[in-house]
Design a protein around this nucleic acid. Structure first.
Lengths: 200, 200, 200, 200
DNA sequence: GATGAATGAGACTTCATTCAT
DNA sequence: CATGAATGAAGTCTCATTCAT
């Protein structure tokens, strides 16, 4: 009876939502929080009404973007979470995976930067749940590896130091259009040899 | 006809402008680029017409804020620029001074973060001159120290790495209300021992 | 090529149009003029594209709704128009029939209310013809009965008084969810004994 | 220090708010709930930004309009509430005062019509408090008079009947541009002689 | 110098409507 | 016939800015 089947419509919906989120991520990288729905629509090559067909408003779109990025972040670091080896080695591997993903996937970069900045620029308290989920699924596992790896000293502070450095370096490079020159190994090596030499 | 002397008026003027810039910095830390002139006026306990009495528009205010911060940043790191000692030690000292200032002076934090993010969130091309000045007065001297300190390897990348890490760590801590718990020595030690161990 | 005969299609067509009009009446009772085609479609359990398949636009739908209600209103009061008896009794009977129909048939209520309110809330001048028809087929016959019944005094004013009261009472009851408690006899009695006692 | 004193500003504010509310009432009479802020501003001879300077949004404006009308309604019927005489006479006097006020003051007409229609056309549940206040300050006192006047029979139904009729007649006349021809005495007489003759 | 009333450009959002399937 | 994806006109509203006092 239906001219398109429910499955066809669902496929279209999912495709469009991804298309829109990706466009939004690109626009966000250019204009920051001041992105306009109109820009997103242009980037996605859609009418702006279409964006509203899928997202009730700008905040819903950004929220969905970040949740989606959270899922992809988790997938990206999973090997380090489940892998074998010494804890500090796992933490280093985790950092490497995180950094690579973050460089390659704009949404993940936005997520990590946004979390590091505690949703600065993002108005309202819409993101408490997202932050809690990020902590539980990404950050606390990382803190645990650090804790096991470095002994008695404050693993939270060390994790913050590593995370802040990773995100800070990435932001500097990406915002200055040096994404392609980024030296993942160099950054992670620097940070972790810094951590280890302090351990001694 | 005026009941005040020119000197009195100038004093009021300077006082008001500092009052407004400081308020603007505080509001920026809360709301980011979406700060409103009204918020600034409330924070400064002035009518919002008064803000316009001193600043032609929002961008002038932010620009003035950043230029002012640039001057104070320069003053803060001056000892490291002029001091004696090995280049890498001077760079470390420079970093320490920068980080301390950045933690203690909100405007300086905003400046460094903004520069690191290449004026992301800031619309327009208003800040080219400011960026050039920052490069000349702060960043290139720092790069030089690094260059002298580490030999042939890319000092720009290393400087970026250090600068990105410093700003990233500071941002993480400040935005999560952990300004007072920040361990300046720890951060700088970590970064520089990381740098040095890679040198070996 | 069509798998359905013309008759079957016509039957579907008429059924669907009634289904949609009834849904529209129900939605109008809830949301007033701000009804959305989407609401109507949901209430009718149809896709909203289907509503547009039958009605070119929202105004056509409302117009059709009111014309349809006008026809049913005429049928409902016909007995009073053609019946015997004193004019005032006929007017009373007319009122009783009108009120009953109006309570029982949402579309008729909407029609009468809309006419009483002179298409307030309805934008445009789309309804002049409908209003003229209502006057000719419903209102003027009623005014004539009044004229014959009460002698020289302004029958138009009296008819307005009766009509306004009937519709006003019905609206109050229906909008406050007291449709089922409405006392048709009581209302008509009150109005007509009021009219008559003024005659004496 | 202030260029205008607080008192001057307050006076301006109050004046403007009344000016805007009155304009809003006039526009509402023309266009109903679909009134646009732009229309209101034009009618009030103000920029539409000015309307937003005083009212956060359309609904706040309408809400304030209705509250203001409620206060004026109460003042208008006060003499009947406090006066002497038989209860039914007081109810009749109340009705007369209400009707006169309603004809003369557009906002009061809008209030009464809106209450009678149970906020039909008004989206949201913003008006529960207003309705409760109306009940307490206007309607229940009226019901009490009826109760004392007519003995055992349902005073609520009678009050509804009277209120519905009054508002219905007024609406019919006002919406058909016959405000000036309205016969307050005739309407109230008709209703109350109808009520009384049913009492006998 | 100080203030807040007044304003409209421009962004946000809704929703009627078109149209491909 | 039936549907919902796609769209943009038109309305809502925010907020930087001007200006009279």
């Amino acid at each position: 009876m239906s001219p398109r089947t429910k499955e066809q419509n669902d496929a279209i919906r999912e495709m469009r939502m991804n298309q829109i989120m990706q466009a939004a991520a690109e626009v966000y990288l250019e204009k920051g929080i001041q992105l306009e729905i109109r820009d997103v629509a242009v980037k996605a090559e859609l009418g702006y009404g279409t964006v509203y067909h899928y997202y009730k408003n700008k905040h819903m779109l950004l929220e969905d973007l970040l949740w989606d990025a959270l899922n992809r972040t988790e997938s990206a670091v999973l090997p380090a979470l489940t892998g074998d080896g010494g804890s500090l080695l796992k933490a280093e591997s985790f950092s490497r995976l995180l950094l690579r993903k973050c460089i390659q996937d704009p949404s993940v970069f936005i997520l990590l930067k946004t979390v590091a900045d505690n949703f600065h620029h993002f108005p309202g308290n819409r993101f408490i749940k997202l932050f809690a989920d990020f902590q539980e699924r990404i950050y606390l596992p990382f803190v645990e590896m650090i804790r096991e790896g470095i002994g008695f000293k404050s693993p939270e502070k060390t994790a913050n130091l590593i995370f802040g450095s990773l995100v800070g370096c990435t932001a500097l490079n990406i915002h200055h259009n040096m994404r392609n020159e980024m030296d993942v190994e160099g950054i992670v090596d620097m940070i972790f040899s810094g951590i280890q030499s302090k351990e001694r």
